[in-house]
């Protein structure tokens, strides 16, 4: 009897890029639900727009590059980029902002560098930073979380859609009625006005550690992160180093003077720290491959996040920190090459 042959190995673990991406998406579901619970359906709308823009850009780039579209288009990486990008956007966000971010993230940050596997910068962060510096006012519009705060109106789906499509709220609603600064913004602004953290924290919107509502989204993101760890999609090194770096800086400063420095818990549970640690910094393509490299890379993101939050002109620094550390990856990889087995030093 005759048989077909192939070179070894003859079998393969049941893992695939698509499978990893699917797991990442499942892990984001709890956070998505929490987001919808506190902030309404805006994030779903933004995710959908981002996904359409991401797929269209990806298809166009693949076609321009003369590559087959089918396998690469549906490997799930564009979907993950789109959803992570949507997590960074405020729930009230004009559609063109979303589209511009994704066209830049996928088209320039990903495909101009050669497509999946070759990009230096995290596409979602590149897209987000572009819209953040281009449309700072649009990025600062967070609706109040639904936590029983009666001063603010919650925009319903119709209002969200109206804002998304036209860039303005329906008659009778003003921006001030539905949105306000994030807690990171409030803290930064308050500290700039020489208020103490205790005074600042009495303002509505602050929860136990970070922003009320947003804390819960962050808890869910952390749960998703643990799912990724358990399913071996990510390793512990990067998230531990990001959170460790941020916590170390925040704790030192806070111990020096708790009045002028937000608490470590506030840093951890505000803004993009959790998302950055578990879902952004762990993007395999734009982070180091070695264990030691990942520790340095993660610590760098954590420390830079703190530095930018504290001294920079933006309230949050995760996205900038990630992009800055992305640049160091080739260098980190060279430095942290493991010793080849059997070779001296």
């Amino acid at each position: 009897m005759r048989f077909a042959t192939d070179l070894p190995p003859q079998w393969h673990a049941t893992v695939s890029v698509g499978g990893m991406m699917r797991t990442v998406l499942y892990a984001l579901v709890p956070a998505l639900l929490a987001h919808v619970w506190f902030y309404g359906a805006g994030i779903l709308l933004n995710s959908g727009i981002a996904l359409l823009a991401a797929l269209a850009t990806e298809a166009a780039c693949l076609r321009l590059g003369g590559k087959p579209t089918a396998p690469d288009l549906f490997d799930g990486s564009a979907l993950v980029t789109a959803v992570l990008f949507a997590f960074c956007l405020p729930p009230l966000c004009p559609w063109w902002v979303t589209v511009i971010g994704m066209v830049f993230g996928i088209g320039v940050a990903k495909h101009a560098y050669g497509g999946l596997g070759y990009n230096i910068f995290n596409p979602a962060m590149a897209g987000y930073v572009l819209v953040l510096v281009s449309f700072p006012e649009a990025m600062a519009l967070w609706p109040a979380p639904d936590i029983g705060d009666l001063d603010y109106l919650r925009p319903d789906l119709a209002a969200t859609l109206h804002y998304c499509l036209l860039g303005s709220l329906p008659d009778g609603l003003t921006i001030d009625a539905v949105a306000r600064a994030t807690t990171l913004d409030s803290a930064k602004e308050g500290l700039g006005l020489m208020r103490t953290m205790d005074e600042i924290r009495t303002r509505p919107g602050f929860g136990d550690f970070g922003g009320a509502g947003w804390e819960w989204v962050n808890n869910c993101i952390a749960i998703g992160g643990f799912v990724l760890l358990l399913r071996s999609v990510i390793r512990w090194h990067t998230p531990a180093a990001v959170l460790g770096g941020l916590l170390t800086m925040a704790t030192l400063a806070w111990l020096l003077d708790p009045n002028t420095h937000p608490s470590p818990g506030f840093h951890l549970f505000s803004g993009g720290a959790m998302l950055g640690a578990f879902f952004i910094a762990t993007d395999p393509v734009s982070s180091p491959t070695t264990a030691r490299g990942r520790l340095i890379y993660g610590a760098g993101i954590g420390i830079l996040t703190y530095v930018i939050r504290t001294f920079g002109s933006y309230a949050d620094g995760v996205a900038f920190a990630v992009l800055l550390m992305n640049v160091t990856v080739p260098l980190l990889e060279r430095w942290t090459r493991p010793r080849v087995y059997g070779r001296a030093g």
Binding site: W11, S16, L116, G117, Y118, R235, T290
Partner: peptide
Amino acid sequence: LGPAAEEMPCIRCG
């Protein structure tokens, strides 16, 4: 042996 799958670019997962 499990199903055969198509080769993709390296995603540097380590």
